[in-house]
Measured scan of single mutants.
Amino acid sequence: KQVQVGDEKYTFDTPEEARKFAEKVAKEKNLKVTEKNGNFHVE
């Protein structure tokens, strides 16, 4: 599963790991997490 933050992409083995990372980054940057096709976008 992938997490996209701006132009950066991070790959994780499980959706749970990806979601945790996305939520942590979103909180730090005051952004929101959206899920698209099983991948997460922080925007």
Score class of each variant (00 low, 15 high):
K1D: 03
K1L: 12
K1V: 15
K1A: 15
K1Q: 09
K1H: 15
K1Y: 15
Q2M: 14
Q2V: 15
Q2L: 13
Q2A: 11
Q2T: 15
V3L: 02
V3R: 00
V3S: 01
V3H: 01
V3Q: 01
V3I: 03
V3C: 05
Q4P: 01
Q4A: 08
Q4C: 15
Q4E: 09
Q4L: 15
Q4D: 06
Q4Y: 15
Q4V: 15
Q4R: 11
Q4S: 11
V5N: 03
V5R: 02
G6I: 05
G6V: 05
G6C: 14
G6A: 06
G6M: 08
D7Q: 10
D7Y: 09
D7L: 10
D7I: 06
D7H: 10
D7N: 13
E8H: 13
E8T: 13
E8Q: 13
E8A: 11
K9Q: 12
K9S: 12
K9G: 06
K9E: 08
K9P: 03
K9F: 14
K9C: 15
Y10F: 13
Y10K: 04
Y10D: 02
Y10T: 02
Y10Q: 03
T11I: 13
T11L: 13
T11A: 08
T11F: 14
T11S: 10
F12L: 01
F12P: 01
F12G: 01
F12W: 01
F12V: 00
F12S: 02
F12I: 00
F12C: 09
F12K: 01
F12H: 02
D13I: 05
D13N: 10
D13V: 05
D13F: 05
D13E: 12
D13L: 08
D13W: 02
D13T: 08
T14A: 02
T14E: 07
T14Y: 03
T14S: 12
T14I: 02
T14F: 03
P15G: 09
P15L: 14
P15R: 13
P15W: 14
P15D: 11
P15A: 14
P15H: 14
E16K: 03
E16H: 05
E16T: 06
E17C: 10
E17H: 02
E17L: 09
E17T: 03
A18N: 04
A18P: 00
A18R: 01
A18G: 02
A18I: 00
A18M: 01
A18F: 00
R19V: 06
R19K: 12
R19N: 07
R19Q: 10
K20M: 10
K20A: 13
K20P: 00
K20H: 12
K20T: 07
K20Q: 13
K20C: 12
F21K: 04
F21H: 06
F21A: 06
F21R: 04
A22F: 04
A22D: 04
A22H: 01
A22G: 01
A22R: 02
A22M: 03
A22N: 00
A22K: 01
A22V: 04
A22S: 00
E23P: 00
E23F: 02
E23M: 01
K24I: 10
K24S: 12
K24Y: 06
K24G: 10
K24T: 11
K24L: 11
K24N: 11
V25S: 03
V25A: 06
V25Q: 06
V25K: 02
V25Y: 07
V25T: 08
V25E: 06
V25F: 05
V25L: 13
A26F: 01
A26P: 00
A26E: 03
A26W: 00
A26D: 02
A26G: 07
K27I: 11
K27R: 11
K27W: 09
K27N: 11
K27C: 14
K27D: 07
K27Q: 12
K27M: 12
K27T: 10
E28V: 07
E28T: 07
E28L: 05
E28H: 06
E28F: 00
E28S: 08
K29H: 14
K29N: 13
K29M: 13
K29A: 10
K29S: 09
K29G: 11
N30R: 09
N30I: 03
N30H: 11
N30S: 09
N30E: 08
L31Y: 07
L31H: 08
L31F: 07
L31D: 05
L31T: 08
L31W: 12
L31K: 05
L31E: 06
K32Y: 07
K32R: 12
K32I: 14
K32Q: 12
K32G: 09
K32P: 08
K32E: 09
K32D: 08
V33W: 07
V33G: 03
V33H: 03
V33P: 04
V33Q: 03
V33M: 09
V33N: 04
V33S: 04
T34G: 06
T34I: 14
T34Y: 14
T34V: 14
T34Q: 09
T34N: 09
E35P: 04
E35G: 04
E35M: 14
E35N: 09
E35W: 03
E35D: 07
K36H: 13
K36S: 12
K36L: 13
K36Q: 11
K36G: 06
K36C: 15
K36I: 14
K36M: 12
N37F: 06
N37M: 05
N37D: 14
N37A: 03
N37H: 06
N37R: 00
N37S: 05
N37C: 13
G38K: 01
G38C: 10
G38S: 02
G38L: 03
G38M: 02
G38I: 00
N39T: 11
N39S: 12
N39P: 00
N39H: 11
N39V: 15
N39C: 13
F40C: 08
F40T: 06
F40S: 04
F40E: 05
F40R: 04
F40Q: 05
F40M: 07
H41E: 11
H41M: 10
H41P: 05
H41Y: 15
V42H: 03
V42Q: 04
V42I: 09
V42Y: 02
V42R: 00
E43L: 10
E43V: 13
E43W: 08
E43T: 12
E43S: 12
E43H: 10
